[in-house]
Each structure stands twice: as C-alpha cells, then as structure tokens.
Deep mutational scan, measured.
Amino acid sequence: MGFKLLSKLLVYLTASIMAIASPLAFSVDSSGEYPTVSEIPVGEVRLYQIADGVWSHIATQSFDGAVYPSNGLIVRDGDELLLIDTAWGAKNTAALLAEIEKQIGLPVTRAVSTHFHDDRVGGVDVLRAAGVATYASPSTRRLAEVEGNEIPTHSLEGLSSSGDAVRFGPVELFYPGAAHSTDNLIVYVPSASVLYGGCAIYELSRTSAGNVADADLAEWPTSIERIQQHYPEAQFVIPGHGLPGGLDLLKHTTNVVKAHTNRSVVE
C-alpha cells in the first residue's frame, strides 16, 4: 500500500471513529477524501466538511520552486461564519470567499490569524475590503508590521502568557507558548472536538522541520505538551499544512522538532 493511500485511509478511519463516538456532533463529509496538494491548482481553494458547521479550507501556493498546501478553518456561528487564517495570499483568499459563498452561503463576518507569517495573514486586506472584521493577538499584529505583512485590524486580548485561553464565538483560542513562531495560536472547536494546530503542528508525513527561522526550538516541545494537557479530548487535529489526523500529530511534531534540534547540535 502506497504512503499517500495509507495517509488518506488514516484520515478516513479517524473521521469514521469520530462519527461513531459522537453521532450528534459529527456529520463528516462523505463526498470524498481530504484534498491534497496535487489536486488543488494554485489560485483555487477546496472546502472539506469535518463536522456539522465545521470545515477546513485548503489552498496551495508556490514557494521556492515548489507547491505547498495550506489549511485553515471555518466555523459556523449562528447565521454567520468565523474564518481562521487566510488562504495564503490575496488571490487565494478572494477564491476562498467565493467558494464559501458557493458552498455554504453564509457571510464571513470575523477572521482570526493564528500567527504573523504570510500563509496566515496574506489576504487580510481582501477580507477587510469584503467587510470582514480581522483579528490577531497584539504580538501577531506587531510582528506582521515588522515583517511588512498585512496586519489584522483588531487585537485579541488575554493571550499574552503561555497557557492563556479565551473564548471567541464558537471557538476557544489558546496560546501554548512559542513553537513554530513566538505568537502562534491554537484554535479548538469544543462542539466538535476539532483542534486546529496551525503551523505549530505537523502532518504525519512530514519528517523535516522546514521553516524554523522564527521558531523557538527549545520551547516548542513544552508548548505541545500544554496543548495535549489542555485538549486531551480532541479527536480531529488539523495541521497548518497537509493531512489531518488525531492527537498523534502532536507527538510526531515533537519528535521531528527534537530530531532537528539534535542534528543542529551535532553539526
């Protein structure tokens, strides 16, 4: 069995187990497998329904001669939608809004960016022009300005110390501490036991640490421990890039980060 097929099978099995364990909360999309990078042309966006009122959005972007996937989250909030992270750029984010209108038909009224990198804030200006209120932590807003990236308009308070959590509509926002970046936030959907790890969490097929220019490698494993301790009931975990899975993604990420750190020390 090929690795790609095995990865998709694991996603399907995880979703099936969740649907059985929580039949009222989960209505997993039966329309197909989780979209992969090879299936999404740059400039297009796919939506994948995880649970009743919960979707991931998947886009792709060219970077350094390669094409990478990027995940975000959409959560229903009454007759409105909360968006977590842009679709990595203005063109993708405009396509995301169009796809949401086509498939869901509810307005996106608020959006949260989970850290300051372009795959999370690139497209904020498109959201703002569409009347979406954009939010991020003060740290993310400051770092985005320093980096020359787009800056969300509103500040999220109460997320300055490791372990801080605040309720934001249908989700809980959690600051686990520094990891992929010093400002990275985690998003949890309690009604569906869905954990969105953003770039602080890796997919299972990833074996290298990737972009760690703004990471705190020493603190990252401790931050992941905080996530595990705060959300032990999480059933569906979405990484910032690639295929979702279960809580095993947290341990896998820790292993990859520690291996990278150990290699760096040896070198």
Rank of each mutant, 00 (worst) to 15 (best):
M1R: 06
L5I: 15
L6G: 11
S7N: 09
L9W: 15
L10P: 14
V11Q: 07
Y12E: 10
T14L: 10
A15Y: 12
S16D: 08
I17K: 15
I17N: 08
M18D: 12
M18H: 15
I20P: 07
S22A: 12
P23I: 08
L24P: 11
A25K: 15
A25W: 14
V28I: 13
G32Y: 14
E33Y: 08
E39A: 13
E39G: 14
I40L: 15
I40V: 15
V45D: 05
V45E: 03
R46Y: 11
I50G: 03
I50V: 12
D52E: 12
W55Y: 07
S56M: 15
S56V: 15
S56L: 15
H57E: 02
T60V: 15
Q61S: 10
S62Y: 04
F63A: 05
D64K: 15
G65N: 10
A66H: 14
A66E: 14
V67F: 15
Y68G: 04
G72W: 02
I74L: 08
I74N: 05
V75I: 08
G78S: 09
E80I: 07
A87C: 00
G89L: 04
A90Q: 10
K91L: 14
A95D: 08
L96R: 00
L96W: 00
L96T: 00
L97P: 03
L97A: 00
L97D: 00
A98K: 09
I100M: 06
I100E: 00
I104P: 00
I104G: 00
G105T: 13
L106Y: 12
P107S: 12
T109M: 12
A111D: 02
V112E: 05
S113M: 04
S113W: 02
T114G: 01
H117G: 00
D118I: 07
D119A: 05
R120P: 01
G123M: 05
D125M: 08
D125N: 12
V126M: 05
L127V: 02
R128T: 12
A129Q: 12
A129D: 12
A130G: 10
G131Q: 08
V132W: 01
A133H: 12
T134I: 03
Y135T: 01
S137A: 08
S137F: 02
S137Y: 05
P138T: 09
S139L: 11
R141M: 13
R141V: 08
R142S: 13
E145R: 14
V146W: 12
V146K: 14
N149M: 15
E150L: 04
E150H: 03
T153H: 11
T153Y: 14
H154T: 11
L156E: 03
L159D: 02
S160Y: 10
S160L: 11
S161T: 13
S162H: 14
G163H: 05
D164G: 09
A165T: 13
A165N: 11
G169H: 07
P170G: 06
V171L: 07
E172R: 02
F174M: 13
Y175W: 04
G177F: 00
A179T: 07
H180T: 00
S181H: 01
S181I: 00
S181M: 01
T182A: 12
T182M: 14
L185D: 01
Y188W: 14
V189P: 01
S191Y: 12
A192C: 05
V194T: 06
G197Y: 00
G198Y: 02
A200Y: 05
R206I: 15
R206T: 15
S208E: 10
A209Q: 09
N211P: 00
A213K: 14
A213T: 11
D214C: 05
D214K: 03
L217D: 02
T222R: 11
I224D: 02
E225V: 12
Q229A: 14
H230L: 10
Y231P: 01
E233C: 05
A234M: 06
V237I: 06
I238A: 02
P239S: 03
H241K: 02
H241C: 03
G242H: 06
L243W: 08
P244D: 00
G246H: 09
L249F: 06
L249I: 07
K251V: 12
K251T: 13
T254Q: 11
V256E: 04
H260E: 14
R263C: 07
V265T: 13
V266N: 11
E267H: 12
